[in-house]
Design a protein around this nucleic acid. Structure first.
Lengths: 186, 186
DNA sequence: ACAGAAATTAGACGATGTTCAATTTATAAA
DNA sequence: TTTATAAATTGAACATCGTCTAATTTCTGT
């Protein structure tokens, strides 16, 4: 109940308007219950963001379904953008939420993130046969960062204010160039 | 006074702990004064972030001083990372702060952002002689997004949790690859 | 039916941003 | 210098937030 209502509230108002009290009100419980169950509002947000990560991974997989060859890379980038655009507030919450600098990243969140990375790494490896695994892993992380940067600027208005109107094409372009530079034939 | 104290508070506690009341307390004024002068706490944050942008631009320029040739590109990427690392909280505040979805980006902030972009565009154009201006502008925006993505992941722990320990090298690698793919000789 | 454990609550607490009538301070004219 | 007008500043009230804890309700198993 809490995760459902919390996810909906996050989707509606974004992280800025998220409130444990509002979640409690929506499910008819008191604030204390909601907050104690997750060790504070931070824990609740972490749980919601982890769920978002898992949905994102599933979305990517289904977006890849049926494609083959180099087209899968385009689908991958397109899926990253698509999920973020269609779930703007929940997607943004993943990166807007920062827990206190001393507490380590909960494994719930780290694992969810790793799962998404694994999907991308699999696709990168597929277009780079014969490339050593560590190099594939490193390039994967870098390409995710590349696409993420484009996605952030596309969705927070940075690209718009700079006059850019096709961020997805830019991201696909950079990813393609880097894959080719590292030996892929696309 | 307000901007000075506000910038210091942002640097110390980050956006999460930023408070107009604390700013007022530090300069010995009341909350109302601080907030009314900037049309709410959002306006104050916008002013602080714009100042950060301008400092960032200045830092980049001074970081480029004395370098020439393709080395300037490396300096550019290194400067982007360096400022973010050395001014983590104030840098992060630029991207953590989101104003309500209906209000447009204040020109104060948009102009500061454009100024930084202009510096990068100048350097990109220098290594791509003969490239049409619109193509340079587009590639510039894309490369900034690329570096930004790497910077975000480096500083928010995403790279660390994925086992990556040299984000700067990755960013330089991607930028170099894309510049070469677009005709630069580096 | 009952006792112990678990879940849940109510309420107080300190802090936040917003708002606005009231007050103080600065400015310029007489 | 006095005065009147404008500007700056305040103080307090308000609604909301996350956190905490003692008290209460509900569940569970004997």
């Amino acid at each position: 109940m809490i995760l459902d209502a919390g996810g909906q509230l996050m989707a509606q108002g974004g992280y800025a308007r998220f409130s444990a009290r509002e979640v409690a009100k929506r499910i008819g419980y008191s604030v204390g219950t909601v907050v104690n169950l997750f060790n504070g509002v931070d824990g609740l947000v972490v749980a919601i963001n982890s769920a978002t990560f898992r949905q994102w991974t599933g979305f990517l997989e289904s977006h890849l379904h049926g494609a083959d060859g180099p087209d899968r890379i385009v689908r991958l980038v397109d899926g990253y953008f698509g999920f973020a655009r269609d779930n703007l507030n929940r997607w943004a919450a993943i990166y807007e939420h920062r827990l206190p600098p001393d507490v380590p990243m909960p494994s719930l969140l780290a694992d969810a993130r790793s799962a998404l990375t694994t999907v991308v790494a699999r696709e990168v490896a597929a277009v780079l046969p014969g490339t050593p695994a560590p190099a594939v892993a490193s390039l994967t992380r870098s390409l995710i960062a590349t696409v993420h940067g484009h996605c952030v600027f596309a969705l927070n208005g940075s690209f718009a204010v700079l006059g850019e109107n096709d961020p997805l094409a830019l991201a696909v372009g950079r990813v393609t160039e880097s894959l080719r530079a590292n030996g892929a034939v696309l």
